[in-house]
Design a protein around this nucleic acid. Structure first.
Length: 858
DNA sequence: GCAAGGTC
């Protein structure tokens, strides 16, 4: 045995840092090697991986989709390759010299596999070092120390279960994805993908859409009366609803026969009073919610308007900054070592949470709620007690942080108490035409957790105190004709909850799967609706590869993985059987390949068809020019050359809604946060044609007396050519201030897409142009845009703010800030920088990344 | 350029 230092390997850097801190008693030092943190103390070193650092894939000779028959992938070999080169190389370096290795990855199946990957990398360079495995369910001093005192061996069966999943997913996913893409001749960026998790998720959405379409609404009627307590004034009035008991004695409000409804209404309308028949009071407690797991967090953030993806991205940022715990967890039970009082103490004295924390601390005992799921890897999401400063978070981050804090507050708060009051009154009993009305009142007596958690509804409904036998005046009645409604579409959070119920996907992947469905053109809008392509993919799968769109495949795989874990089966058994099954699927598919392809292609075209061409009656479809910009062209091209332009920003999406005048589908332009609805492309073009250019001054590039100094390059014919500046509306929907000599002079300034542009009497002295104002047709304040040249300069200054660097390298604002901190504030200093030196100084950036940036800058 | 699973 060698005498080198002990090497501890964790699943992520964050865990490495905390374990080093615990085991070293705070004395560990951190150094960066190739952008990877290594923590060192005593005779020990600790390094964090980044989840899987190796990935499974087919060998390179299988890379060309057209060269390899998809069916060949079923029995193709599978390689494991490093995917995180930097981490792998640092790991190898340290492992070579290690005297002992301890694998401390997460305590779950995937963690065991990640541990085994590390094990194999260590073994490649050091074949006799002792390799131990430690397991702990939370990174606390007690658990970590005890785990390191009782090391165990890696569970190779558990890891093999994970490997079986990798292989089955790759083989099924790749073979079927390539088959569908090839048969529809969809290669390149818009390939047609299917997989074990996205398949059933898409089918959920498609099935719901089928139910909605097949839904046959039924008419029904409901009757209401306003009842007033005598002498109670306006405050004593409340609404009651007609009800009856149906044949099996259950209470019903909906009347399905119009005659019966009318007859009841006649009685109600004729009556002046209703007599209280019964009054029932009940006290109900309303328990506070369970701690947040990922799914419930996403759901709560969803009700604040965040998409699943966005909610998780914010939570990850808050986690990295140290304000909340790890956001990927299934656990809904706080661990024993979480002391709620101690955590509440952290909020005492703060402006936003101080009062609530004080109030909670005054409770006699604090007993947090618990959910059904108790796992051991990570705690439920809760605040860490480290508080962000006022400037540390933007508005969205703050809103999500507050949600997490308040959820924690709610879980340690008292239940709420409601008083329910149910009043039943009868009408027309004297005349023998007995008719019942009911009203349910709800009053919050003890707010309990609602006082600290305003996100769940605590709305009251008023019903006054009345006594049995009391006569109430009927002050108003209504007769409402309604229809049963189709089932509702899944919202993103509901979809994630359903996936969790079915066991499809994991806490870390479910939100990404939904995003992937959007990116692949399978769903659009929110709540998501399936595209024609999605239906075609589900239909084809149902016919030939039902497993790939059914949650059964996951259930079966889960059972197989458990068998491997128990030692009742091995990886070979499971993958062989799965490959045989896939071979059978392919027999059917290959026979019908052409029909499947035709169907997919028709659906793709349907997703792009805007409507009938007004010139020739063929289809108008969305096309892409060679330069990559989108436009609408006629399917009969070149016989028909009719085209309509589309806005230059974003990717077009056709909406269900069509234009009443032209019958064309409305267009939405997807551009992240700048997404907007373009509407009917023909209406836009016609509006532009009808809108005369409004001249507002001389063109600074080519107008009479044009100054030589201009804010931007024009292609103009030089000064004195007589160009004028005008407000123009283009057929693509864009608006701008541009030269009347276009296209000879290309001088232009952008204008906002929305609102009506007014030319005011005020003028800009510098540019001799009138100031503009944008007026909106809703209740928004008008926007004083001012001189268009000054406005554009300000806009550019805002956009560009220090960031040639950002636009050249494509890095985000935050990375740019970090680079600036490291002394790199422009492109030239980036080019001169030493990649390793940059990687050492900038967190989360490796030397390879720096080299990539440098390549882009060149 | 395929999947799903880790992590950033």
């Amino acid at each position: 045995m060698s005498q080198g230092p002990e090497l501890i390997i964790t699943e992520k850097d964050n865990a490495a840092r905390r374990i080093a801190e615990i085991l070293s008693g705070g004395s560990a030092e951190s150094e960066r090697r190739r952008g990877v943190n290594v923590y060192t103390w005593g005779g020990r070193r600790c390094i964090g991986l980044s989840g899987h650092v190796v990935g499974v894939d087919f060998p390179p000779e299988y890379d060309d989709w057209r060269d390899v028959e998809p069916v060949e992938l079923i029995d193709a070999p599978i390689d494991k390759r490093p995917t995180q080169e930097n981490i792998v190389s640092v790991l190898r370096l340290l492992a070579r010299k290690a005297g002992r290795v301890v694998i401390a990855t997460d305590y779950d199946r995937e963690g065991e596999l990640i541990g085994k990957e590390a094990y194999e990398l260590v073994r490649e360079v050091n074949d006799d070092v002792r390799i131990d495995r430690v397991r702990f369910s939370s990174i606390t001093e007690r658990e970590v120390k005890s785990a390191f005192e009782n090391p165990d061996d890696l569970d190779f069966d558990l890891a093999a279960a994970g490997e079986a999943r990798q292989i089955v997913d790759l083989v099924w996913g790749a073979a079927l994805t390539r088959f569908l893409s090839l048969s529809a001749r969809q290669l390149g960026d818009d390939f047609i993908s299917v997989g074990r998790v996205q398949g059933p998720t898409l089918k959920l959405i498609v099935d719901r859409e089928r139910e909605i379409e097949a839904f046959d609404p039924e008419d029904y009627w409901e009757l209401f009366a306003d009842l007033a307590k005598r002498g109670g004034g306006a405050d004593g009035t409340f609404e009651a609803q007609y009800f009856y008991c149906d044949d099996d004695g259950t209470e019903a409000e909906r009347v399905t026969e119009e005659d019966a409804a009318s007859e009841a209404y006649e009685t109600l309308e004729a009556a002046a009073t209703a007599t209280v028949e019964s009054v029932r009071r009940r006290t109900r407690t309303d328990d506070p919610p369970a701690p947040f797991n990922t799914t419930q967090f996403i759901r709560a953030a969803g009700s604040l308007g965040y998409s699943a993806q966005r909610a998780m991205s914010i939570a990850e940022d808050l986690y990295t900054a140290g304000y909340v715990t790890y956001p990927r967890t299934d656990n809904t039970v706080y661990p024993d070592d979480l002391d709620p009082r101690e955590l509440l103490d952290a909020f005492v004295g703060t402006r936003q949470f101080g009062d609530d924390a004080d109030a909670l601390l005054e409770q006699d005992d604090i007993d947090p709620t618990e959910g059904d799921e108790e796992t051991t890897d990570h705690p439920p999401i809760h605040p860490t007690g480290e508080l962000p400063g006022a400037a540390d978070l933007d508005d969205d981050e703050w809103e999500v942080y507050e949600l997490v804090v308040r959820r924690f507050f709610a879980t340690v708060a008292e239940p709420a108490t409601w008083e329910h009051l149910r009043v039943v009154a009868t009408v027309g009993a004297d005349e023998g035409a007995d008719l019942s009305l009911k009203a349910n009142g709800k009053r919050l007596v003890e707010p309990g957790y609602h006082a600290v958690y305003p996100y769940s509804s605590a709305s009251e409904s008023f019903v006054p105190d009345v006594a049995e036998g009391e006569a109430l005046a009927i002050t108003d009645t209504s007769f409402e004709a309604k229809q049963t409604q189709p089932p509702r579409r899944y919202g993103q959070s509901r979809l994630i909850e359903t996936m969790e119920d079915l066991g499809v996907g994991t806490k870390s992947t479910r939100h990404n799967v939904i995003q992937k469905l959007y990116d692949r053109g399978y769903i659009e809008s929110d709540p998501p609706r399936p595209t024609r392509l999605a239906r075609a993919v589900v239909e084809a799968s149902e016919e030939f590869a039902e497993r790939i769109v059914s949650e059964e495949m996951t259930a079966q795989l889960e059972a197989d993985m458990q068998a491997i874990t128990r030692g009742d089966a091995d990886l070979e058994d499971v993958t062989t059987e799965s490959r045989e099954m896939l071979s059978e699927v392919f027999e059917g598919l290959m026979e019908s390949g052409e029909a499947v392809g035709d169907h997919l292609r028709e659906s793709l075209k349907a997703d792009r068809t805007v409507g009938a061409c007004p010139e020739c009656g063929s289809d108008l479809v969305i096309r892409q020019s060679r330069q990559g910009s989108y436009f609408i062209g006629c399917d009969a091209y070149p016989e028909c050359t009719n085209t309509l332009p589309l806005p230059s920003t974003g990717k077009p999406l056709l909406l269900e809604e069509t234009c009443a005048e032209h019958g064309l589908a409305h267009v939405k332009m997807l551009a992240g946060r700048k997404t907007f609805v373009h509407g009917c492309p023909l209406c836009q073009a016609e509006a532009a044609d009808a809108q005369a250019d409004r001249v507002i001054g001389t063109c600074p590039d080519c107008g009479v007396g044009a100054a030589s100094e201009t804010p931007r390059d024009g292609g103009g014919g030089g000064a004195e050519a007589g160009g004028e500046l005008a407000i123009k509306q283009l057929r693509s929907g864009s608006r701008l201030v541009g030269c009347t000599r276009y296209p000879e002079c290309e001088y232009s300034l952008p204008l906002p897409r929305r609102g009506e542009i007014e030319v005011t009497d005020a003028a800009c002295e510098e540019h001799d142009l009138p100031e503009l104002r944008v007026v909106y047709d809703d209740d928004r304040e008008p926007w004083d845009l001012g001189c268009p040249i000054c406005n554009y300069r300000e806009y550019q200054a805002e956009q560009g703010g220090g960031s040639e660097l950002e636009s050249v390298t494509g890095i985000g604002e935050k990375t740019a800030e970090k680079l600036q901190d490291a002394g790199i504030d422009d492109v030239s200093s980036l080019k001169e920088a030493e990649p390793d030196a940059v990687a050492d100084r900038v967190d989360g950036v490796g030397p390879d990344t720096v080299r990539e940036w440098q390549a882009k800058a060149d």
